[in-house]
Write a protein that binds this DNA or RNA. Structure first.
Lengths: 241, 241
DNA sequence: CGCACCGTTGATTAAACTCAACCTATGTGG
DNA sequence: CCACATAGGTTGAGTTTAATCAACGGTGCG
């Protein structure tokens, strides 16, 4: 029996913290040149292909990941394995810090949605930087607080809004978060099931509601991609507080 | 016409940070004696009576409150004024830091549920301490991360569990958070509507489910207070992941 | 080809909300 | 003191929303 082995080599440029565009991002902008050097020499960068599970809920954290490029989803596994997507992470985001900071098992799993170049920073280095540089700690605190604000909003949304409203909202959020291409199509493709797992509903409900929006000429569907053609009408589906 | 004016003076002992029991709490334990002194001399303590609204969603934050004693609820105002309770704060908790840190309007309103002695720390002092003492910043980061973990869990709960499960869970959470008195009755009294506003349901649903639990001999009701008499049966109402 | 995964549709069911009425306790003004 | 208003609690009936169940079509892949 013969096996054909296909080796696919995807190349990626190893990022250097010192001239990484992300150092201008909120988190790393306050690091000193020396600290950037420490970061650069201890970080471990790799390309993670679509579908890879980076880490799982309940697993012990070893550090944080800085997203140089790519898209990932953070989710919890709920009742009967149903996944609840907590949020998406993309270029410039840092994930895994919650678990690294408090030294508890991860509260979410992370899966690569689009090939990603990630820099891993171990907990020791993270803590060294946090202790040495309180501005850095404050910036990470900022990130955590922003996420917390979003989470609080989302609790209210899920608790009070209808499935239709939540889907309308998520479409707008995806648009603002991922942008649109030249044809105005939102730059992320999610399965119907994934959308359901964001807003906390059944796949069939998502299908029906997307199809409603389509027949009301509010959106256009291109497979997994969505184009919003009437943002105002879409917003009218959202009860504002 | 005569008016009878009743002046009620409630006394409270002004807390001194240096020997405040809370300094052993996670947040303040890393402050130096000097920093505790700064904290002590700039903080403003007051007694806030039940019913007082400390601050409102959307309002600009001026600092954080350290809870010396008392109970408060943090909530968002959602659709048609329906309140969504995000969480409760009690002795030893610090509230308002999210807004103070990121310099955005508050994302929740806060109301006093039980007379509270609160120490107000203005944003300047907070930032001074954060900058001077990275351990302090790390500890606040810890608090934010814990809250974030809880919020993520709650998103999954609300999205996936039934109202009955959520109520069962909240009763257990209230018990562990507030403890029970000598008769085993949970040390917090909430209206049916407030319970509804925690789990995101209608008041009537809470009434019906509590009454179900009562007739199944799982809980006993004493007005607004609840006694859990069969914790195992209550837990059976919660689907575990 | 056959399998797996995704998307779609229709029919049915179940969960929870809404509405309405009524009860009780508490507090208020006349 | 009574009359009344207010807020919280309760119950029942009817309706709505969304979940579930089932069947089926399309697509890509080994």
């Amino acid at each position: 029996m013969q096996q054909k082995i296909i080796v696919m080599i995807k190349n990626f440029e190893e990022p250097v913290c010192d001239n990484c565009a992300l150092k201008f991002n909120i988190l790393f902008k306050k690091l000193t040149p020396l600290q950037l050097e420490i970061l650069n020499s201890t970080k471990i960068c790799s390309l993670y292909e679509k579908g890879t599970v980076l880490y799982k809920e309940g697993g012990r954290s070893l550090g944080v990941y800085c997203i140089h490029s790519g898209v990932l989803k953070l989710y919890k596994t709920g009742i009967e394995g149903k996944e609840q997507i907590i949020h998406f992470a993309k270029t410039g985001d840092v994930i895994g810090y919650r678990s690294a900071i408090i030294g508890e098992p991860a509260c979410t799993s992370v899966k690569v949605l689009e090939d990603s170049v990630l820099c891993f920073i171990n907990t020791n280095t993270l803590y060294t930087l946090l202790r040495e540089n309180s501005e850095f700690a404050i910036d990470l605190l900022n990130i955590a607080c922003k996420e917390l604000g979003w989470a609080n909003n989302y609790i209210t949304d899920i608790a009070q809004k209808s499935v239709k409203e939540r889907i309308a909202e998520i479409l707008l959020k995806l648009k603002s978060e991922f942008g649109v291409d030249d044809d105005g199509i939102i730059n992320i493709g999610l399965t119907r099931e994934e959308i359901a797992n964001i807003v906390g509903t059944a796949t069939e409900s998502v299908i029906r509601i997307l199809s409603d929006f389509k027949s009301e000429k509010i959106i256009e569907l291109y497979g997994r991609k969505v184009k919003i053609i009437d943002e105002n009408k879409l917003k009218k589906n959202i009860t504002s507080y």
